[in-house]
Design a protein around this nucleic acid. Sequence first.
DNA 1: GTCTATACAGAGATAGAC
DNA 2: GTCTATCTCTGTATAGAC
Lengths: 217, 217
Amino acid sequence: MATRDKLLEAAAVALAEDGVAGVSARTVAARAEVNQALVFYHFGTVDELLEAAVRRSVDRAVATYRDRLADVTSLADLLTLGRDLHRTERERGNVAQMAQVMAGARRSPALASAGRYAMDRWSAEVESAVVRVLPGTLLAGLVDPRGLAQAVAAGFIGLELYDGVDPGAAAGALGSLDAIGAMVAAFDALPPMAVRAVRSRARKAVARAAAAQGDAR
Amino acid sequence: MATRDKLLEAAAVALAEDGVAGVSARTVAARAEVNQALVFYHFGTVDELLEAAVRRSVDRAVATYRDRLADVTSLADLLTLGRDLHRTERERGNVAQMAQVMAGARRSPALASAGRYAMDRWSAEVESAVVRVLPGTLLAGLVDPRGLAQAVAAGFIGLELYDGVDPGAAAGALGSLDAIGAMVAAFDALPPMAVRAVRSRARKAVARAAAAQGDAR
DNA sequence: GTCTATACAGAGATAGAC
DNA sequence: GTCTATCTCTGTATAGAC
């Protein structure tokens, strides 16, 4: 394996395991079993190494899900795939890498850029499936697919950090989100006419609530 | 103002503005305009100072919302309050502080403890309102209040970090969550019988889906 | 491309005077 | 409680030999 790749790999692992505050040119180089100076030769700065590492992780991960996301035809499908995606990406440390660069974004433009890139890639990919699936659901016309995909991505990041300080609580949070997803998906199983009726009621009530709030201001 | 307080205050601001990677005994002491050695005299280590600072921020913030959360009687109320809470706590930097200690949890037990404490305080407080409000809604019997409160807290953390790398996207994500909340709340406006009918349909469909998934395994 | 050596800044932390 | 001084370590980064 080339030195460059060894560094990228080591940086990704270090980021996931020790967090952004725990990585340095020395520690990453030690992990990669290469000389410390090579970090600067190949990447210029430590932050740029981290950025490159996260971009690579994200590109790889997104590619492995592209086909499966393309096969999704219903919200229930999407939720099943989502659960799987969440579990594997967490286990691989990819979610942790994203959370860590985002946390470090305040002090480093390179990390901010990596975080933006990662969130963008994932939410664009998820959005493409949401766009196909949403029209048949209760949420059609109420939420926009892009925002929903972004919310899911943000939720994963929050859950990742929560898991790091309180795994039990994070599991409880995930369970609730799962239940809500299942409820929304459940409406797909009803006759289309019933779905339309419920959806239209919901939309009217939302409009009423919005109008009432407008009056209050 | 006593030195101890100046340090706590400076640490909270530094954490929110520069992130956990950007704080040091020296930078915090400079911000507080006190001597660097006093960090160690008063708090032992930098991490313990950060922990104390976050605990104080959380205790204060939770106290300012206690009464208002106690007044909540409907999901619509709770969502309105939630929006306000989210905005002000973000502006005060309290959400950023929480996100940063959680990101630093991997390398420091003190920060992990601070993160756990913060999430616990907030979700317990929110849970007390959710418990009262949930029975009247579509989600009654489907999601447990504690898990839902924890999910909301985790969501805030994720959105905070997202906002740091892509404010527009974070706003889009928040908008979608808002719409979903509004939809669920909208059912409160329907006649109780209709709510019960929809809820029971949803619950049966969820049970069916769960059974189907059980069969598939 | 890779290594050794090294400069230099900033970090955490302690000792001891006041 | 506070300040000065200082030790030691770790971090980034570069120069130059190979």
